[in-house]
Design a protein around this nucleic acid. Sequence first.
DNA 1: ACCCATCCTTGACAATAATCAAGGCAACGA
DNA 2: TCGTTGCCTTGATTATTGTCAAGGATGGGT
Lengths: 232, 232
Amino acid sequence: MPDSQFDDLRRLPLFSAMENLHFDDLIRASYVQNFPGQIELVAEGEPADFLHVVLSGSVELFAGWNGRETSMATVRPISTFILAATIRDAPYLMSARTLEKSRIALIPSQDVRSIFDRDGGFARAIVDELAQCYRSVVRNAKDLKLRSSLERLANYLLREQRRQGGASAFELPFDKKRLASLLGMTPENLSRAFKSLQAYGVDVDGSRVTIRDQADIERFAKPSPLIDGLPT
Amino acid sequence: MPDSQFDDLRRLPLFSAMENLHFDDLIRASYVQNFPGQIELVAEGEPADFLHVVLSGSVELFAGWNGRETSMATVRPISTFILAATIRDAPYLMSARTLEKSRIALIPSQDVRSIFDRDGGFARAIVDELAQCYRSVVRNAKDLKLRSSLERLANYLLREQRRQGGASAFELPFDKKRLASLLGMTPENLSRAFKSLQAYGVDVDGSRVTIRDQADIERFAKPSPLIDGLPT
DNA sequence: ACCCATCCTTGACAATAATCAAGGCAACGA
DNA sequence: TCGTTGCCTTGATTATTGTCAAGGATGGGT
């Protein structure tokens, strides 16, 4: 396989601290592939044969039960997904599909585990990434249990605004049906929630969101670093 | 400190694979303490100075926002909590309080991190534990997003039945107010939910639950290994 | 036995969210 | 231009869940 493809990988925090030899071992059996949008990459319940790394594009993690389906998270470059299943050699708990044309690296789980045992820098990076993932799911659970859907939307908008640089106007990164599912509500309710937020200085036109009154929406949303992450 | 106190620790999967020397290093600055019930051990937002291990009793993890509070999980012997905060040297995302008289080991986070780098067996055990924690929060999030409160209760009862050995009658491990919070509902609603489950062969008398018709409640609850864990 | 506290349950009601059924609107191709 | 399609919105209705207020039941403690 062409080495150049793996340059982005090498620069990932997850791989940057490991020895060259081990990195080479790791990617020997790996490959990078381009996928179109809306392709299911992994299905929940399957054995976790590969650690996946999103190099470009974006991937949605979702889960289903009893005929229902919900969006769990969005994975953006450059980060991994289903690391926990890889480490425990257990079935995936979530399915994954590309949201758009995406470049994905696939690294055999077995190699990840075996090199973990031989490379301290890699081990340290894995545990760091995993701890971060854990904390982000905990935050998500707090968001779900402590806030109403309107509050979740308000805080989501503030997070997204921050993620995109903090300007008062920004674009929603995916369609509203998906956003509704991510926030744990129906598309109909999301529509109404957007309308309710007008009263707090938020305007939506298509996928364009404008925060007319930052202080007002923040007063309503009450964002917390312990749920929404640090302002950094 | 008396070595004998740490025997239980040594046998924990988290510590059993590490070298004696490192284990000794780790517990040198650690201590074990007995707490009465209802004592707050850590508060969310505080720096994670110690990794906590529940040796006996039980601990509730909970979180608050905007005057509300919710129960996130129960930690039973012998396992750790707030491992992720320890690893990332970040503030706790959850508070913890003893549910009953409990024996807790406190291990300085700094030592956990430094020995992680020197002991491969320990590193492997940490990442394993953390991956398990991650998966359990993901399962919890799926439970919350994909199921109604009645379905959550039904599945909780089946999990608890299994955890206690599988007999058709068992005791709820804590009061109903706490259970309601854990399941993301109000105590009033929990009462009504229990009543609704009578139609599916579940009887409750105080904290004693009796499954009259196992097949019936399972047909309603539709437990899944990808949410409720494996039947093992 | 009595009081008292705690915990749980109930009922009436309100708020929140989901469902169902239309409809609007922009983009696209014929 | 016209139809079609997909996506989103709206309104009406129902379902689910939360809130408030009141009332058992239970188990101390005196």
